[in-house]
Design a binder for these strands. Structure first.
Length: 269
DNA sequence: ACCCAGGATGGTG
DNA sequence: CACCATCATGGG
Protein backbone atom coordinates (compact mmCIF):
# COMPACT_ATOMS: atom_id res chain seq x y z
CA UNK A 1 0.00 0.00 0.00
CA UNK A 2 1.28 3.43 -0.95
CA UNK A 3 -0.30 6.74 -0.07
CA UNK A 4 0.44 10.24 -1.27
CA UNK A 5 -1.18 13.63 -1.66
CA UNK A 6 -1.26 15.63 -4.85
CA UNK A 7 -3.32 18.55 -6.00
CA UNK A 8 -2.26 18.03 -9.62
CA UNK A 9 -3.14 14.38 -10.06
CA UNK A 10 -6.81 13.57 -10.45
CA UNK A 11 -7.65 10.01 -11.44
CA UNK A 12 -11.17 10.84 -12.53
CA UNK A 13 -9.94 13.63 -14.78
CA UNK A 14 -7.23 11.48 -16.31
CA UNK A 15 -9.70 8.68 -16.92
CA UNK A 16 -12.05 11.08 -18.70
CA UNK A 17 -9.36 12.91 -20.64
CA UNK A 18 -9.42 10.66 -23.68
CA UNK A 19 -5.80 9.56 -23.51
CA UNK A 20 -6.30 6.07 -22.05
CA UNK A 21 -9.08 3.60 -22.70
CA UNK A 22 -8.39 0.61 -20.46
CA UNK A 23 -8.99 1.88 -16.94
CA UNK A 24 -12.00 0.39 -15.18
CA UNK A 25 -14.00 2.05 -12.43
CA UNK A 26 -15.01 -0.35 -9.70
CA UNK A 27 -18.28 -0.27 -7.81
CA UNK A 28 -16.52 1.14 -4.73
CA UNK A 29 -15.16 4.07 -6.74
CA UNK A 30 -11.61 2.80 -7.07
CA UNK A 31 -9.87 2.60 -10.41
CA UNK A 32 -8.33 -0.57 -11.79
CA UNK A 33 -5.41 0.61 -13.89
CA UNK A 34 -3.76 -1.93 -16.17
CA UNK A 35 -0.35 -1.15 -17.63
CA UNK A 36 2.75 -3.08 -18.57
CA UNK A 37 1.18 -6.44 -17.68
CA UNK A 38 0.24 -5.31 -14.18
CA UNK A 39 -2.92 -3.98 -12.62
CA UNK A 40 -2.90 -1.22 -10.04
CA UNK A 41 -5.87 -0.44 -7.84
CA UNK A 42 -6.09 3.22 -6.93
CA UNK A 43 -8.43 5.23 -4.74
CA UNK A 44 -8.68 8.97 -4.42
CA UNK A 45 -10.39 11.20 -1.87
CA UNK A 46 -9.66 14.81 -2.68
CA UNK A 47 -5.90 15.15 -2.82
CA UNK A 48 -5.41 11.88 -0.96
CA UNK A 49 -4.35 8.94 -3.12
CA UNK A 50 -4.01 5.31 -2.14
CA UNK A 51 -2.37 2.71 -4.36
CA UNK A 52 -2.51 -1.05 -3.94
CA UNK A 53 1.16 -1.73 -4.71
CA UNK A 54 4.20 -1.58 -2.45
CA UNK A 55 6.79 1.20 -2.44
CA UNK A 56 9.22 -0.62 -4.68
CA UNK A 57 6.71 -1.22 -7.43
CA UNK A 58 5.34 2.27 -7.11
CA UNK A 59 8.72 3.85 -7.70
CA UNK A 60 9.75 1.34 -10.35
CA UNK A 61 6.58 1.48 -12.42
CA UNK A 62 3.80 3.83 -11.44
CA UNK A 63 5.74 6.96 -10.58
CA UNK A 64 6.78 7.20 -14.20
CA UNK A 65 3.40 6.05 -15.50
CA UNK A 66 1.62 8.94 -13.79
CA UNK A 67 4.45 11.30 -14.81
CA UNK A 68 4.83 12.42 -11.21
CA UNK A 69 8.07 14.20 -12.02
CA UNK A 70 6.57 16.18 -14.90
CA UNK A 71 6.54 19.95 -14.63
CA UNK A 72 2.81 20.47 -14.30
CA UNK A 73 2.89 22.84 -11.35
CA UNK A 74 5.38 25.02 -13.16
CA UNK A 75 3.28 24.88 -16.31
CA UNK A 76 0.25 26.09 -14.40
CA UNK A 77 2.29 29.06 -13.20
CA UNK A 78 3.44 29.74 -16.76
CA UNK A 79 -0.03 30.13 -18.22
CA UNK A 80 -0.68 33.61 -19.50
CA UNK A 81 -3.03 35.30 -16.99
CA UNK A 82 -4.41 37.41 -19.83
CA UNK A 83 -5.48 34.24 -21.64
CA UNK A 84 -8.83 33.80 -19.93
CA UNK A 85 -9.83 30.71 -21.87
CA UNK A 86 -6.66 28.73 -21.21
CA UNK A 87 -6.59 29.90 -17.60
CA UNK A 88 -10.08 28.53 -17.13
CA UNK A 89 -9.28 25.32 -19.00
CA UNK A 90 -6.13 24.65 -16.98
CA UNK A 91 -7.89 25.37 -13.70
CA UNK A 92 -10.65 23.00 -14.71
CA UNK A 93 -8.32 20.17 -15.71
CA UNK A 94 -5.36 20.77 -13.42
CA UNK A 95 -5.40 17.13 -12.33
CA UNK A 96 -4.58 15.87 -15.81
CA UNK A 97 -1.22 14.37 -16.57
CA UNK A 98 0.20 12.90 -19.74
CA UNK A 99 0.53 9.25 -18.81
CA UNK A 100 3.55 7.28 -19.94
CA UNK A 101 1.63 4.40 -21.48
CA UNK A 102 3.03 1.62 -23.57
CA UNK A 103 3.73 2.62 -27.15
CA UNK A 104 1.89 -0.32 -28.66
CA UNK A 105 -1.26 0.24 -26.64
CA UNK A 106 -1.32 3.88 -27.66
CA UNK A 107 -0.75 3.02 -31.30
CA UNK A 108 -3.69 0.64 -31.34
CA UNK A 109 -6.06 2.78 -29.30
CA UNK A 110 -5.53 5.87 -31.39
CA UNK A 111 -5.65 3.95 -34.63
CA UNK A 112 -9.14 2.99 -33.54
CA UNK A 113 -9.95 6.48 -32.31
CA UNK A 114 -10.27 8.09 -35.72
CA UNK A 115 -13.70 9.46 -36.56
CA UNK A 116 -14.96 7.71 -33.45
CA UNK A 117 -16.25 8.66 -30.02
CA UNK A 118 -14.62 7.89 -26.69
CA UNK A 119 -17.38 5.63 -25.43
CA UNK A 120 -17.19 3.44 -28.48
CA UNK A 121 -13.40 3.47 -28.58
CA UNK A 122 -13.38 2.22 -25.00
CA UNK A 123 -15.79 -0.57 -25.86
CA UNK A 124 -13.75 -1.67 -28.84
CA UNK A 125 -10.48 -1.65 -26.91
CA UNK A 126 -12.09 -3.60 -24.10
CA UNK A 127 -13.30 -6.19 -26.58
CA UNK A 128 -9.76 -6.57 -27.92
CA UNK A 129 -8.38 -7.06 -24.41
CA UNK A 130 -11.07 -9.56 -23.54
CA UNK A 131 -10.55 -11.57 -26.70
CA UNK A 132 -6.77 -11.43 -27.14
CA UNK A 133 -5.26 -10.28 -23.82
CA UNK A 134 -4.15 -12.43 -20.90
CA UNK A 135 -5.85 -12.11 -17.51
CA UNK A 136 -4.08 -9.91 -14.97
CA UNK A 137 -3.83 -10.27 -11.18
CA UNK A 138 -6.90 -8.82 -9.53
CA UNK A 139 -9.25 -10.40 -12.00
CA UNK A 140 -10.63 -7.10 -13.28
CA UNK A 141 -8.49 -6.17 -16.24
CA UNK A 142 -6.70 -8.03 -18.95
CA UNK A 143 -3.33 -7.26 -20.40
CA UNK A 144 -3.25 -5.31 -23.59
CA UNK A 145 -2.77 -7.85 -26.39
CA UNK A 146 0.63 -7.99 -28.05
CA UNK A 147 1.14 -7.45 -31.79
CA UNK A 148 1.59 -11.20 -32.22
CA UNK A 149 -1.65 -11.92 -30.40
CA UNK A 150 -3.56 -9.45 -32.56
CA UNK A 151 -1.84 -10.61 -35.72
CA UNK A 152 -3.46 -14.01 -35.27
CA UNK A 153 -6.88 -12.48 -35.72
CA UNK A 154 -8.56 -11.76 -39.00
CA UNK A 155 -9.79 -8.43 -40.21
CA UNK A 156 -13.31 -9.82 -39.98
CA UNK A 157 -12.74 -10.58 -36.30
CA UNK A 158 -11.96 -6.94 -35.66
CA UNK A 159 -15.04 -5.94 -37.62
CA UNK A 160 -17.08 -8.18 -35.37
CA UNK A 161 -15.71 -6.26 -32.40
CA UNK A 162 -17.12 -3.06 -33.81
CA UNK A 163 -13.97 -1.54 -35.28
CA UNK A 164 -15.74 -0.81 -38.53
CA UNK A 165 -13.50 0.22 -41.42
CA UNK A 166 -10.58 0.56 -38.98
CA UNK A 167 -10.41 -3.24 -38.79
CA UNK A 168 -8.31 -3.24 -41.93
CA UNK A 169 -5.88 -0.75 -40.42
CA UNK A 170 -5.44 -2.79 -37.25
CA UNK A 171 -4.94 -6.03 -39.17
CA UNK A 172 -2.23 -4.40 -41.26
CA UNK A 173 -0.57 -2.77 -38.25
CA UNK A 174 -0.54 -5.98 -36.22
CA UNK A 175 1.09 -7.90 -39.03
CA UNK A 176 3.60 -5.13 -39.55
CA UNK A 177 4.55 -5.11 -35.87
CA UNK A 178 4.53 -8.80 -35.04
CA UNK A 179 7.64 -10.96 -34.60
CA UNK A 180 9.81 -8.20 -33.23
CA UNK A 181 8.68 -5.61 -35.73
CA UNK A 182 7.42 -3.41 -32.94
CA UNK A 183 10.78 -3.38 -31.17
CA UNK A 184 12.59 -2.35 -34.32
CA UNK A 185 10.03 0.32 -35.08
CA UNK A 186 10.16 1.62 -31.51
CA UNK A 187 13.94 1.88 -31.64
CA UNK A 188 13.73 3.87 -34.84
CA UNK A 189 11.20 6.17 -33.22
CA UNK A 190 13.37 6.71 -30.17
CA UNK A 191 16.31 7.61 -32.37
CA UNK A 192 14.26 10.05 -34.42
CA UNK A 193 13.46 13.63 -33.55
CA UNK A 194 9.84 14.71 -33.38
CA UNK A 195 9.53 15.50 -37.05
CA UNK A 196 11.20 12.31 -38.22
CA UNK A 197 9.17 10.23 -35.80
CA UNK A 198 6.00 11.86 -37.09
CA UNK A 199 6.97 10.89 -40.63
CA UNK A 200 7.68 7.30 -39.57
CA UNK A 201 4.26 7.09 -37.98
CA UNK A 202 2.29 8.55 -40.88
CA UNK A 203 4.00 5.96 -43.06
CA UNK A 204 1.84 3.35 -41.35
CA UNK A 205 -1.41 2.41 -43.06
CA UNK A 206 -4.26 4.16 -41.27
CA UNK A 207 -2.07 6.62 -39.37
CA UNK A 208 -2.51 10.21 -40.47
CA UNK A 209 -1.39 13.52 -39.07
CA UNK A 210 -3.61 13.61 -36.02
CA UNK A 211 -3.17 10.01 -34.90
CA UNK A 212 0.59 10.39 -35.36
CA UNK A 213 0.53 13.38 -33.04
CA UNK A 214 -1.42 11.40 -30.45
CA UNK A 215 1.11 8.58 -30.60
CA UNK A 216 3.95 11.05 -30.27
CA UNK A 217 2.34 12.61 -27.20
CA UNK A 218 0.76 9.68 -25.40
CA UNK A 219 3.02 6.87 -26.59
CA UNK A 220 6.42 8.55 -26.77
CA UNK A 221 5.89 11.41 -24.33
CA UNK A 222 6.97 13.97 -26.91
CA UNK A 223 5.52 16.85 -24.97
CA UNK A 224 5.53 19.32 -27.83
CA UNK A 225 3.10 17.26 -29.87
CA UNK A 226 -0.20 19.07 -30.28
CA UNK A 227 -2.88 16.74 -31.65
CA UNK A 228 -5.52 18.73 -33.47
CA UNK A 229 -8.85 16.94 -33.64
CA UNK A 230 -12.32 18.31 -34.23
CA UNK A 231 -12.50 19.75 -30.69
CA UNK A 232 -9.12 21.46 -30.81
CA UNK A 233 -9.79 22.90 -34.25
CA UNK A 234 -13.07 24.36 -33.05
CA UNK A 235 -11.37 25.84 -29.98
CA UNK A 236 -8.61 27.42 -32.05
CA UNK A 237 -11.08 28.89 -34.54
CA UNK A 238 -13.29 30.29 -31.82
CA UNK A 239 -10.83 31.46 -29.18
CA UNK A 240 -7.51 31.84 -31.00
CA UNK A 241 -8.36 33.16 -34.48
CA UNK A 242 -4.92 34.79 -34.73
CA UNK A 243 -3.11 31.62 -33.73
CA UNK A 244 -2.30 29.77 -30.53
CA UNK A 245 0.80 30.92 -28.60
CA UNK A 246 2.63 27.62 -28.90
CA UNK A 247 6.09 29.00 -28.24
CA UNK A 248 5.17 30.12 -24.75
CA UNK A 249 4.43 26.54 -23.75
CA UNK A 250 7.29 24.78 -25.51
CA UNK A 251 8.16 21.62 -23.65
CA UNK A 252 4.66 21.22 -22.21
CA UNK A 253 2.54 21.95 -25.27
CA UNK A 254 0.94 18.53 -25.15
CA UNK A 255 -0.31 19.08 -21.63
CA UNK A 256 -1.77 22.42 -22.67
CA UNK A 257 -3.54 20.67 -25.51
CA UNK A 258 -5.04 18.24 -23.02
CA UNK A 259 -6.36 21.07 -20.85
CA UNK A 260 -8.07 22.56 -23.89
CA UNK A 261 -9.45 19.24 -25.08
CA UNK A 262 -10.75 18.22 -21.68
CA UNK A 263 -12.33 21.61 -21.05
CA UNK A 264 -14.15 21.48 -24.36
CA UNK A 265 -15.29 17.93 -23.70
CA UNK A 266 -16.46 18.29 -20.11
CA UNK A 267 -16.28 21.93 -19.09
CA UNK A 268 -19.51 23.13 -20.61
CA UNK A 269 -17.74 26.05 -22.22
C1' DA B 1 -34.19 10.60 -38.40
C1' DC B 2 -30.21 13.12 -37.87
C1' DC B 3 -25.62 14.68 -36.85
C1' DC B 4 -21.42 13.76 -34.73
C1' DA B 5 -17.29 11.31 -33.26
C1' DG B 6 -9.68 12.58 -30.56
C1' DG B 7 -9.74 11.14 -39.29
C1' DA B 8 -7.46 8.74 -43.09
C1' DT B 9 -7.42 7.25 -47.69
C1' DG B 10 -7.82 7.43 -52.53
C1' DG B 11 -9.44 9.88 -56.37
C1' DT B 12 -10.21 14.15 -58.88
C1' DG B 13 -9.83 19.08 -60.45
C1' DC C 1 -1.57 21.84 -53.98
C1' DA C 2 -6.69 21.71 -52.35
C1' DC C 3 -10.93 19.72 -52.14
C1' DC C 4 -14.11 15.64 -51.70
C1' DA C 5 -16.63 11.20 -51.42
C1' DT C 6 -16.19 7.32 -48.77
C1' DC C 7 -15.35 4.45 -45.04
C1' DA C 8 -18.56 1.38 -40.30
C1' DT C 9 -20.98 2.07 -36.47
C1' DG C 10 -23.01 3.61 -32.35
C1' DG C 11 -23.67 7.80 -29.07
C1' DG C 12 -26.50 11.57 -28.03
Amino acid sequence: MVTMTSASLDLNQIAASGQCFTWKRLADGRWAIPAFDRCLFAAQDGAQLTFSCDEDEFHAVWRAYFDLDGGYDELLRTIDPDDAYLTAAAAYGRGIRILRQSLWEVMVCFLISQNNNITRITRSVDALCQSYGAPLPGGVCRAFPSPDALAQAQESDFQAHGLGYRARYLAALSREMRSGGLDAFAQALHRADDREAHALLTGLYGVGNKVADCILLFGLHRMDAFPSDTHIRRILETHYPQGFPRARYAGMLGAVQQYLFYYDLHGGA
